[in-house]
Nucleic acid binder design. Structure first.
Lengths: 227, 227
DNA sequence: TCTGATGATAACATTTACTTAACCTAACTC
DNA sequence: GAGTTAGGTTAAGTAAATGTTATCATCAGA
């Protein structure tokens, strides 16, 4: 993922902080959103789905801890990284913050350099999590969605996109039969209209590369991947 | 399955990790067992048959990979989900881990929230297998509509689509008599017109494959499936 | 610009499911 | 018990679905 595509939501009631921190993060190439209180923060988080949220603990309207709890409840934001801004020594907030679902905290006064490197570190985690999430193992196959590659019996196999997507779909639920229409929907998208033999040809290529008996045809229905 | 009934075996040589991860998983309601090395892990796994095993790769005595291999050999633990804990960047362990039979890996440093959600995701797989509503059991028959397959006395039987639909219909209400017209409606669709002997022929094939006495003819009415 | 990879397609082959026709059997009616 | 009716059986025919291969347009990268 590119830095440009990373969105950070910055929440503090002091405009000075928003500006200074916002400036530094923008300079690093991140996409920065700001909010001045918890209510606004939750609203923006819901709408924009940021990757990282930096939350001041002490705020009017709704404090950071409550905002954090609210955000954590949203299903789309389960994987968002949340970090608090706390005045040093406010030990309480650290404990309460972790309880509320925070991942880290940054102490005020803020030193921009430190903040930026912390943000980088946090986002690095995000990347890794993504990549580990996108690795699936079925039988002797390892499917790596990030790198668009397959490892079969320790050997790497490179598949073109369509073939990869198709395999990836079928292998996501080994044994389950995917109807032709479902396959078209998910691999080709439901606007595209392709000829009747297109799926077959791709299945054929997969059979060639991955193994003939991994793909079963259910006539009149579709295909399934078996281990 | 209730969370209380789910057992997780956590294996790491660092007590800190055992404590922190153990605490989080226990707080989620899981049943947590711990081991400090591979040997102990295998022993406990054998005895307690946990649903999920979280294995540190680097350990004294027996490392995680070897432990994983040993565990995978045990017949009772074929369906156990195994996930590794690996230090970031230890790319080697990921591949070797998958080879040894692991299903996933989690990178250190551990973010408790992420770990918990990953554990949930892994266990969801387990649940899905158990409670998929597209599987019907009648007597010694298992009808799996997702996979379009029939299991009779632990043996898989492959049926063509019409036969599958027909069996599936009749077996949906064992004992109930389905009128010929109803069968035509549901299996063939009410636009199609087929000859008078078509249903009989399909019933015959089912009798051949599933068993003669499972299908009773009610003359002048239709057919029923009996256990 | 050229090259090779990719993905779609057409045309044909092959396979399989499904249907039908023709004949057979059992049961029921009078 | 002959006639009638509904269903059983079989094999063969047909249509539908899928497999296969070669070919072509497109596009990204050298």
């Amino acid at each position: 993922m590119n830095k440009k595509d990373i969105t950070i939501l910055l929440v503090d009631d002091e405009p000075d902080i928003l500006e200074i921190v916002g400036y530094n993060l923008t300079a690093e190439g991140y996409n920065v959103l700001t909010a001045e209180n918890g209510v606004e923060a939750v609203k923006i988080a819901k709408k924009k789905n940021p990757h990282l949220i930096i939350l001041d603990v002490m705020m009017p309207e709704m404090d950071g801890i409550e905002a954090c709890e609210q955000i954590r409840k949203l299903p789309d934001l389960q994987n968002t990284i949340i970090t608090f801004l706390t005045a040093r020594g406010e030990d309480y907030s650290q404990v309460a913050g972790f309880d509320a679902g925070a991942d880290d905290y940054i102490t005020k006064p803020i030193r921009p350099k430190v903040l930026v490197s912390k943000v980088k570190a946090l986002l690095r985690r995000l990347k890794e999590e993504e990549s580990s999430d996108n690795v699936v193992k079925i039988g002797n196959l390892v499917i790596n969605r990030d790198e668009y590659k397959i490892i079969k019996d320790k050997k790497e196999i490179v598949l073109p996109r369509k073939e990869f997507e198709l395999l990836s779909l079928l292998a996501s639920k080994p044994g389950k039969v995917f109807k032709r229409e479902d396959i078209l929907d998910k691999v080709w998208g439901n606007e595209v209209i392709v000829g009747g033999r297109t799926i077959d040809v791709h299945i054929r290529k997969l059979r060639e590369k991955i193994g003939d008996n991994s793909f079963k045809t259910i006539k009149g229905v579709g295909y399934k991947f078996v281990v």
